[in-house]
């Protein structure tokens, strides 16, 4: 009997330990993965995009509502300095921040920078510290009358802009849903002068009311330079003529633009019917006048 009680006690103890162990595993925090991307638009506007995700049941899921502190540069201990801002990720785990004007002096000081993304420890995640380094670069776009596009990629080095060889550049035109390549070439690699050339072959693309379309030269996900994008307007498209029926006479137009046939028919009917009714009122008045006259005659 005594040994039975001991056996049961051991089993109960083991089950409790196993249960606690499982609970402990449940409480383990999944690692938060933060990704930083650097963007520059038209060589004068820089911003950062940050994405946070974590693994849930073996699959990466966006981490929403995570507060991330973004810094420009870091000190010798790896801690971020020069706060760009604090952002909170959306339901897709994304957030973005511009580099504020207050950091212009720091930005101008060096041709290379490191961006740091820091998250604090929370109930769901441990603290993280991610960084990326970029070198300042720019793209310039030139065009010729025969619709050739030249893009030049340069890096800021030793206080001057130096052409960079071997960078992949895409040339395209900006459309509503994304960018359309200017011809069949997916991308071009810069030569020793940092230049790429492409021929614009998308003839007949709809432009704005003046026929302007937006040429785009871009570098995407470059390890050293990040994402660069330059846009330039050229009158190489077809002029867009707005075909707005709203201002024409139609059944769906505004009240001052009723179709002529409707106006004629409707007002003709109205005039005919109400003309008849007014005539009837006139007859009624006549009956009244006759009655009054009769009354006078009798008097």
């Amino acid at each position: 009997m005594k040994s039975k009680i001991i056996n049961i006690s051991i089993w109960v103890f083991l089950i409790l330990v196993a249960g606690l162990s499982v609970k402990g595993q449940d409480a383990e925090k999944s690692p938060l993965i933060v990704t930083l991307s650097y963007f520059t638009v038209n060589n004068d506007y820089q911003y950062l995009k940050v994405n946070a995700k974590s693994k849930v049941e073996g699959k990466f899921q966006p981490a929403a509502g995570v507060e991330i502190q973004l810094y420009l540069n870091k000190d010798s201990t790896g801690k971020g300095v020069g706060l760009i801002g604090k952002v909170i990720t959306n339901e897709k785990g994304n957030a973005a921040a511009n580099i504020p004007p207050a950091l212009k002096q720091t930005w101008d000081l060096s041709p290379n920078h490191t961006f740091v993304a820091v998250t604090d420890k929370s109930k769901k995640f441990d603290e993280t510290n991610t960084d990326i380094s970029i070198a300042k670069a720019k793209i310039t776009v030139d065009t010729t009358d025969d619709k050739n596009v030249t893009a030049t990629f340069t890096e800021f080095k030793d206080n001057k802009w130096v052409p960079v060889k071997g960078v992949d550049i895409k040339l395209g035109i900006k459309r509503l849903g994304g960018d359309l390549l200017i011809n069949d070439d997916q991308s071009y690699t810069t030569d020793s002068l940092g230049k790429v050339k492409g021929e614009f072959k998308k003839i007949g693309m709809p432009g704005d009311e003046h026929g302007n379309i937006m040429l785009v030269a871009k570098v995407e996900d470059n390890d050293q330079y990040g994402n660069l994008r330059v846009e330039r307007s050229e009158p190489w498209g077809v002029k867009f003529v707005a075909d707005n029926d709203f201002f024409h006479r139609a059944l769906w137009a505004s009240r001052f633009n009723s179709p002529v046939w409707l106006v004629v028919i409707a007002y003709s009917i109205l005039i005919a019917v109400w003309g008849t009714l007014i005539y009837l009122v006139f007859l009624l008045i006549k009956i009244r006048t006759l009655g009054k006259q009769e009354e006078k005659n009798q008097a």
Binding site: I287, L290, G291
Partner: peptide, 9 residues
Amino acid sequence: SFWKGTHLQ
């Protein structure tokens, strides 16, 4: 009251 029942009316 103006109705007098005249032929014309």
